[in-house]
Design a binder for these strands. Structure first.
Length: 361
DNA sequence: TATGAAATGCCCCTTCACGG
DNA sequence: CCGTGAAGGGGCATTTCATA
C-alpha cells in the first residue's frame, strides 16, 4: 500500500513536471507506447521499416498523447541538416519587404524551395551583433542578396556551408548577376537621342553619404564592382556614345532607394533653370517618383522630359506614363540561385536583362 | 581559498549494426 | 521481415581538477 501511494505521488509529480517543463518528446511517447525510440522515428519517417499495423497504432497513440512528430531541432542536431535555406538580405528586413525587387527575388526562391520541401529563413546582415552567433547556424546553405555586412559575411563563410551570391561577386561563392554596365549603357543610348540633350543621373548609394547630393570630382565611389558604380559607368558609356557628357552636378546620389530621397533629388533637378531633359534613374522607384514630380510641376513626360528606370517592377507598367526601363528578372534570379544552391552548381551565371521600351522615354 | 580550465552530462533524435 | 540498442552530434550547464 505504501508503495502504491508513493508511486502514485511519483507519477503525479512526473506528470506535473512534464506539463510545465517541456513538450512531449519522442522518447516520452516511446516509453508510453512501449516500443523503442527508433520505432517511433521510423513510424514517422520510414514507414517501410515497420508493419502497417504497428505504424498505424503508433500514429494513433501519438495523436492521443499530443505528439505531432519528431522535432525539427533535434533532427537537425543529429543529421546536421535542417532543410532550411537562409536568404541573407543586405538591408533590414523592414526595408526589404518594401523593396519590389527583393519581393520578386523571394518569390523565385520560394518557388524552388517549395518544390524541394525546404523551408526559408530570412536574415538581415544588418541585425548582426558583433561576433554573436545567431540564427545562421540553422540553414544548410545561404543565398546572399546584395553585399552583406563584413561581420555577417565572415561569420557565415566560417560555417563552410554552400553559398550563392546575387548581385555581387565574392571569391568564396558562385554568383548570379546581371551585366549592369551593359544594360545601363543600352538604356542610356536608347533614351538619349540628341547630342544636345541635357542628361542627369539619379542613383542610390554611389558614395558613403547620408544626404542627397551631387557627386563631386574626387568622390570615392568605393568598390568598382558595386551595382551603382557599374550602372553609373554604363550610363556614362551610353552618353559618350551619343556624344553627350554628364557633368558631376547632374550625377545625383541618394543614400537609399526610397521615394522621399528620390523626391528631393527630382525637385532639385527640375527646379533648375537649365533643367535636364533626360533623367536616367537607377531604379523604377526613383523613376516613378521623378515622373510624379514632373507631372505636378506641369512638365510633360516624355515630350519635355524623358525618364528611364531600372528593375521593371510590377508598378512600372501602371506608371503614368508607363515606364521605359530595364527588366532584371528578379524572380528568375531567385530561381536560378536557389537551384544552384540545391544542386551544388558552382558555376556563376549572368542573367540576361531586357530593355522595356514604353512611353516615358 | 579563489579562479579558470577541462571534463562530463544532457538534450532529442536518426541510423547503423545486429538479434529473434 | 520486424524490431531494438546504442552511438553520436553541437552547445550549454554543471561538476571536477589544477593552478596561482
Amino acid at each position: 500500500m505504501a508503495w502504491l501511494v508513493s508511486s502514485l505521488i511519483q507519477a503525479a509529480k512526473h506528470e506535473l513536471e512534464k506539463q510545465n517543463k517541456k513538450a512531449t518528446s519522442l522518447k516520452d511517447v516511446a516509453k508510453a507506447i512501449g516500443v523503442s525510440t527508433a520505432t517511433i522515428s521510423n513510424a514517422f519517417n520510414r514507414p517501410d521499416q515497420l508493419s502497417d499495423k504497428l505504424r498505424s497504432r503508433i500514429l494513433e497513440e501519438c495523436k492521443h498523447l499530443g505528439y505531432a512528430g519528431p522535432s525539427l531541432a533535434a533532427r537537425s542536431l543529429r543529421s546536421g541538416k535542417s532543410d532550411v535555406i537562409g536568404v541573407v538580405l543586405a538591408d533590414s528586413l523592414g526595408y526589404s519587404f518594401s523593396d519590389p525587387m527583393a519581393i520578386s527575388l523571394l518569390e523565385g526562391v520560394s518557388s524552388v524551395l517549395e518544390k524541394h520541401n525546404k523551408q526559408l529563413l530570412l536574415l538581415s546582415s544588418l541585425s548582426d551583433n558583433s561576433s554573436q552567433v545567431g540564427a545562421e547556424s540553422l540553414p544548410d546553405g545561404f543565398i546572399f542578396y546584395g553585399t552583406p555586412s563584413q561581420n555577417a559575411l565572415a561569420r557565415i563563410l566560417n560555417l563552410s556551408k554552400p553559398c550563392v551570391s546575387i548581385d555581387f561577386s565574392h571569391e568564396a561563392m558562385p554568383s548570379v548577376n546581371i551585366d549592369n554596365r551593359k544594360a545601363s549603357k543600352e538604356i542610356a543610348e536608347y533614351a538619349i537621342t540628341d547630342s544636345d540633350d541635357s542628361v542627369a543621373i539619379i542613383g542610390m548609394r554611389l558614395v558613403e553619404d547620408e544626404n542627397v547630393r551631387a557627386l563631386q570630382e574626387g568622390d570615392n565611389l568605393g568598390n568598382s564592382q558595386e551595382i551603382a558604380h557599374q550602372r553609373l559607368l554604363g550610363y556614362l558609356d551610353g552618353a559618350a556614345a551619343k556624344g553627350v557628357s554628364i557633368p558631376f552636378t547632374s550625377r545625383i546620389h541618394l543614400p537609399r532607394n526610397t521615394i522621399d530621397y528620390a523626391q528631393q533629388a527630382a525637385i532639385a533637378l527640375l527646379e533648375r533653370k537649365d533643367r535636364p531633359n533626360v533623367i536616367l534613374c537607377m531604379s523604377d522607384v526613383i523613376a516613378m517618383t521623378v515622373c510624379r514630380v514632373a507631372n505636378q510641376m506641369g512638365i510633360f513626360v516624355p515630350e519635355e522630359l524623358k525618364v528611364t528606370g531600372f528593375d521593371d517592377i510590377a508598378e512600372a507598367t501602371r506608371n503614368s506614363p508607363p515606364l521605359t526601363t530595364c527588366s532584371q528578372q528578379g524572380v528568375e534570379k531567385g530561381i536560378i540561385a536557389t537551384t544552384m544552391l540545391i544542386e551544388n552548381d558552382t558555376v556563376s551565371k549572368v542573367v540576361e536583362t531586357k530593355l522595356r521600351k514604353r512611353d516615358s522615354a
